[in-house]
Simulated scan of single mutants.
Amino acid sequence: MSRDVTTEVERLAERLRDFARARDWEQFHTPKNLAMALAGEVGELVAEFQWLTPDESRALDEAAFGRVRSELADVTAYLVRLADLLDVDLIEAANAKLLENERRYDSDLYRGSARKAPPLTS
């Protein structure tokens, strides 16, 4: 089943906007506060994997998977809310970043390597 991701992100942004407005939370949803909340939720997501081996992290039990899913939802909600507030199209931004990374990390030069590429020059 194919979905228009851009439309789905826009629909989620609208729901989050309405959620905040209904609770008079817009006053707290500054870029700084949302970025800090996003960082906190990413920390909670990281904590779910902190002491797992790579194999364990790929084979989560049902309870752990449920917690990871919930943290991913929190991260997504804060990211979408922040992007909405700053008028950033997340899909467009991610595609632009992927194009940049395709230029920086030539597949023939970086296949199988975790090394960083030098910064792009204009």
Results as ranks from 00 to 15, higher is better:
residue 1 M to K: 07
residue 2 S to A: 14
residue 2 S to M: 12
residue 2 S to I: 12
residue 3 R to Q: 13
residue 3 R to K: 15
residue 6 T to E: 13
residue 8 E to Y: 13
residue 10 E to S: 03
residue 10 E to Y: 02
residue 10 E to Q: 05
residue 11 R to C: 05
residue 12 L to V: 15
residue 13 A to M: 09
residue 13 A to G: 02
residue 14 E to P: 01
residue 15 R to I: 14
residue 18 D to C: 03
residue 22 A to I: 00
residue 23 R to Q: 01
residue 24 D to R: 06
residue 24 D to G: 06
residue 25 W to L: 14
residue 26 E to Y: 08
residue 27 Q to T: 04
residue 28 F to C: 05
residue 28 F to D: 11
residue 31 P to N: 06
residue 34 L to T: 00
residue 34 L to S: 03
residue 36 M to Y: 15
residue 38 L to I: 09
residue 38 L to H: 14
residue 38 L to P: 07
residue 38 L to T: 09
residue 38 L to N: 03
residue 39 A to R: 06
residue 40 G to T: 01
residue 42 V to E: 14
residue 43 G to Q: 07
residue 45 L to V: 14
residue 45 L to D: 08
residue 46 V to Q: 15
residue 47 A to S: 09
residue 48 E to C: 05
residue 50 Q to E: 07
residue 50 Q to G: 09
residue 51 W to I: 04
residue 52 L to T: 08
residue 53 T to N: 06
residue 53 T to M: 12
residue 53 T to F: 02
residue 53 T to C: 12
residue 56 E to H: 09
residue 57 S to Y: 00
residue 57 S to M: 03
residue 58 R to E: 14
residue 59 A to C: 12
residue 59 A to N: 07
residue 59 A to F: 05
residue 60 L to M: 06
residue 60 L to G: 04
residue 65 F to R: 13
residue 66 G to F: 04
residue 68 V to G: 12
residue 70 S to C: 10
residue 70 S to F: 04
residue 72 L to V: 05
residue 73 A to P: 06
residue 75 V to P: 02
residue 76 T to G: 15
residue 76 T to P: 13
residue 77 A to T: 14
residue 77 A to P: 02
residue 78 Y to S: 07
residue 79 L to T: 13
residue 79 L to I: 04
residue 80 V to F: 01
residue 80 V to H: 00
residue 80 V to D: 06
residue 81 R to K: 11
residue 83 A to D: 09
residue 85 L to M: 08
residue 86 L to I: 01
residue 87 D to W: 04
residue 88 V to L: 02
residue 88 V to Q: 00
residue 89 D to Y: 04
residue 90 L to V: 06
residue 90 L to E: 06
residue 92 E to G: 15
residue 92 E to D: 02
residue 96 A to D: 08
residue 97 K to R: 05
residue 97 K to S: 09
residue 99 L to R: 11
residue 99 L to C: 04
residue 100 E to S: 03
residue 102 E to V: 08
residue 103 R to A: 15
residue 104 R to K: 12
residue 106 D to S: 03
residue 108 D to N: 03
residue 109 L to P: 00
residue 110 Y to W: 10
residue 110 Y to M: 06
residue 111 R to N: 14
residue 111 R to I: 14
residue 111 R to C: 15
residue 112 G to N: 01
residue 113 S to W: 07
residue 113 S to N: 14
residue 113 S to I: 04
residue 114 A to D: 13
residue 114 A to W: 13
residue 115 R to F: 09
residue 117 A to F: 02
residue 119 P to C: 08
residue 119 P to R: 12
residue 121 T to I: 13
residue 121 T to K: 10
